[in-house]
């Protein structure tokens, strides 16, 4: 029987089979980024938008992303809802992309997302027909509002961007998983495959990482490790593992020992 738990991941009408989403920032070379995508069959990648540097010729990153990949444009650099909306419109104009990761940040120390501005931007962009995936601080009320205004998924942070601390917000993400119907994609702070697996084991629908892969010594291998960990975590979740317990529980039968005498 298909339930919410074991149903395939569908976002914006597209079925996602690889639940590991990859950010494309910080790669040493674009060809390395391309190999990381293709060798792990990454299906969803994020890109950002910036001013061109007229003095420096820079290659178009889209040429290095396979055509069948789902592009999601990050509104990074936006400090409020209006700027995020403007970036989304530019992205659609430039490439026809309508998947938007709303990222609104105006704190330069902790880089925390501004949930209020994010909600405003989500509402507007949904009404303009975008598939909107807001990056957010895992607050239940905000997640409910995001869902209500039509977010295609919510993307709670595991820990601070680039921190590799894993699931600092685990309990709050668990609450979202329990209460929110749209897919939960854990984003930010995932530094190791084991942390990605943990997010999937508790029931997240997908995981997005960037720095952990791009800044690894071997990004292609790192992308593979993350993909496999996310898949393993998903299978573990569906397998309904036992809860942790304080006391021991023998794996082998406690009767019929070989050396027992009566």
């Amino acid at each position: 029987m298909q339930t919410k738990k074991n149903s395939p991941l569908i976002i914006g009408g597209k079925q996602i089979t690889n639940r590991f989403f990859l950010g494309t920032g910080k790669f040493k070379s674009k060809s390395e980024m391309k190999n990381a995508i293709t060798e792990s069959n990454i299906q969803v990648v994020t890109v950002a938008m910036r001013r061109i540097d007229a003095e420096k010729h820079s290659e178009n990153i889209l040429e290095y992303i396979p055509k069948d990949t789902i592009l999601m444009v990050n509104t990074s650099g936006a400090r409020n809802a209006d700027e995020a909306i403007r970036i989304a419109r530019l992205a659609r104009e430039a490439s026809g992309v309508d998947w938007i990761k709303i990222e609104v940040i105006n704190d330069s120390k902790y880089l925390l997302p501004d949930n209020y501005e994010t909600l405003k931007a989500t509402e507007t962009l949904v009404s303009e027909g975008f598939t909107v995936l807001p990056y957010m601080h895992p607050d239940l009320y905000v997640a409910r509002e995001l869902q209500k205004v039509g977010a295609a998924a919510v993307m709670p942070l595991g820990s601070l961007i680039g921190s590799s601390r894993g699931l600092d917000t685990r309990k709050f993400i668990e609450i979202l998983i329990d209460e929110i119907d749209v897919p939960i994609i854990v984003d930010a702070g995932i530094g190791k495959p084991s942390q990605a697996a943990e997010a999937m084991e508790i029931g997240a629908d997908a995981v997005l990482a960037n720095t952990a892969v791009a800044a690894a010594g071997d990004p292609v291998a790192a992308a593979r490790a993350f993909s496999l960990a996310v898949e393993a975590g998903r299978i573990a979740y569906l397998a309904q593992l036992n809860e942790a317990r304080e006391s021991a529980s023998a794996s082998s039968p406690l009767t019929g020992f070989l050396f027992e005498t009566s």
């Binding site: 950010g23 494309t24 920032g25 910080k26 790669f27 674009k30 980024m33 994020t46 890109v47 950002a48 938008m49 910036r50 001013r51 061109i52 007229a54 820079s58 178009n60 990153i61 889209l62 444009v73 990050n74 990074s76 530019l90 992205a91 430039a94 490439s95 961007i161 930010a188 997005l208 960037n210 720095t211 791009a214």
Partner: peptide, 10 residues
């Protein structure tokens, strides 16, 4: 005038 393009990003 703003001239903008796609770049790598998370």
């Amino acid at each position: 005038i703003e001239m903008i393009q796609f770049v790598g990003g998370g």
